[in-house]
């Protein structure tokens, strides 16, 4: 693709801390290369703000290669920007043309309070995983991999669910701020494997309880999450989660 430079109008959410009301701030950025990533564009802007003696814009990022799940920007009404199956860090400026206006907001959900500017606190996800997203592993020698036969199809389905990077875009996209796609990925990837069997029922029940406690909404199967998920986590995982939950509650001891 042809390389080009562009000038852009940015409308960025600025907020000092979780108690601050926050507001949009307008910025004009020039000389942005079509080869840059979206985050690099923010780096350019932040460099300028720093030399001007102003507060740079806070945003989350880590790997910048689409695998850690830290980056989180809601761009022109879509989490992670316009490209499908993509994270913001892998969004490149060739998605835009000279003179475009881009509105950038943080994830919005009560369960994800804004820490500063575009950074939100996603520790609710960690607590959900802590509530049951683990398996029992006894101490001792590592077992031989071949002693636990797993069907290829199941391994693949489990792996597809395990692709979830916990970014929270599904929550940001959902009109109910529901974390069901995330949770269903975490539950499904273990429920499909023999290693996940011992805590299977307990896991789904505690993780759902924790999700509700954190203040996420209930799923209504609109599919907005699946459409925005950078890792293409399938909506059918949610139906699987529902089944896991139903079976666990129907077969509970008391």
């Amino acid at each position: 693709m042809e390389h080009y430079n562009m000038s852009l109008h940015l409308k960025v959410w600025r907020q000092n801390n979780s108690r601050d009301k926050g507001h949009f701030e307008n910025y004009k950025v020039d000389g942005i290369s079509s080869e840059m990533s979206f985050l690099e564009m923010f780096d350019v802007l932040n460099e300028r703000l720093i030399t001007e003696g102003k507060e740079p814009i806070a945003f989350d990022h880590d790997c910048r290669e689409g695998i850690c799940g830290m980056c989180s920007m809601y761009i022109n009404g879509k989490p992670h920007g316009p490209w499908k199956s993509n994270t913001v860090c892998q969004l490149h400026m060739r998605a835009y043309k000279d003179g475009d206006t881009i509105v950038v907001e943080p994830w919005r959900a009560n369960a994800f309070p804004v820490i500063k500017d575009l950074m939100v606190d996603r520790s609710a996800f960690d607590r959900i995983v802590q509530a049951g997203g683990y398996i029992s592993v006894n101490t001792g020698n590592a077992v031989d991999g071949n002693s636990l036969p797993i069907e290829k199809d199941k391994a693949d389905a489990s792996f597809a669910a395990a692709m979830c990077i916990g970014c929270g875009a599904c929550v940001a996209a959902c009109k109910n701020s529901s974390a069901m796609l995330f949770l269903s990925a975490k539950v499904a990837h273990l429920a499909l494997l023999p290693q996940g069997e011992p805590e299977r029922k307990k896991r789904v029940v505690s993780m759902v309880a924790q999700m509700d406690k954190e203040g996420f909404g209930a799923c209504t199967n609109t599919g907005a999450c699946e459409a925005t998920c950078p890792k293409d986590i399938s909506l059918s995982n949610i139906a699987r989660l529902n089944q896991e939950y139903l079976i666990a509650s129907l077969t509970a001891d008391k």
């Binding site: 022109n76 009404g77 907005a224």
Partner: peptide, 15 residues
């Protein structure tokens, strides 16, 4: 569950 809404709505892009 979302006290502060978005300025630009996700709308029908995904559902």
């Amino acid at each position: 569950k979302r006290a502060v809404g978005y300025a630009v709505d996700y709308g029908s892009k995904g559902s």
